[in-house]
Amino acid sequence: MKRTPSYYLQLGFTLLICAFMLVPVLMSVTAGVTENYFKGISSGLTLRWVQEVLSIYSDTLWLTLKLALATLAVNLLVGVPAAYVLARSKSSWARLFEEILVLPVAIPGLAIALALIIAYGGVQDLRTSWLFILIGHVIYTLPFMVRAVVAVLHSIDFRQLEEGASSLGAGFLRRFFDVIVPNCRGGIVSGALMTLTLSVGEFNLTWMLHTPLTKTLPVGLADAYASMRLEISSAYTLIFLVMLLPLLLATQWNGHRRKAQARPAVQTPAPVAKGVT
């Protein structure tokens, strides 16, 4: 393949953008394990800041994990069946409800949080509980779960699969767990990863909904950025990135896997570079 000057120009630009994405992350990670960032790496590497963060903020870690898993559980339990119903129903009521269900995606989290506080902020037991944040996270992430599953259901002929199963004598529950759930596993996994990732990093809603006793990791981060020294903020960010990393890797892996699956058995010739643009 001939590499034109335009090719190298584009490659250069892409690498530059990549550097823009990567450099600040690397700087932050370095700062988190550097003795004194002001002096630079020459001051030595240390895990002191990480330990300090763990001693100050460990409860935010646990709460974040707890919230993410609880949000996931709710989404799986109510979201997957709802997606099935929505994919199956042709009524205009179902379409309307689908629109309402995905509405939280189109409205800034801040507005949703404000609405929740106005409606339920007076209920003290709920307001001070972590469940209040859970409600916010579920409202915000449920659309992603439902849509991921609905998308997969629309891409397979699940009605006919279900008819096939029922022709073999399978009742509703059997069909649901033997045929529907396994065949939209890809969508469920995507939705689950999205739920976890969004919940772990959620700030817009959580900042409004949290109380001093219910601080999540992103809330703690904002706290640290405002009041702690740079090394602690960096170390805290580093811990957050480490928490996020498995989710990011899993998301990428899942994306590749589904792409490979979606490819037809007979491969169409891959479009080769034409050097256009």
Binding site: V78, V85, L101, L103, I112, F172
Partner: peptide, 25 residues
Amino acid sequence: ARLLLLLLPVLIISAAFFLLPLARL
């Protein structure tokens, strides 16, 4: 009825914690 039952939890969550608060807002 079975389909409605499957949808019910989401209906409740959506009405109680999204539509109602939005209306209050």
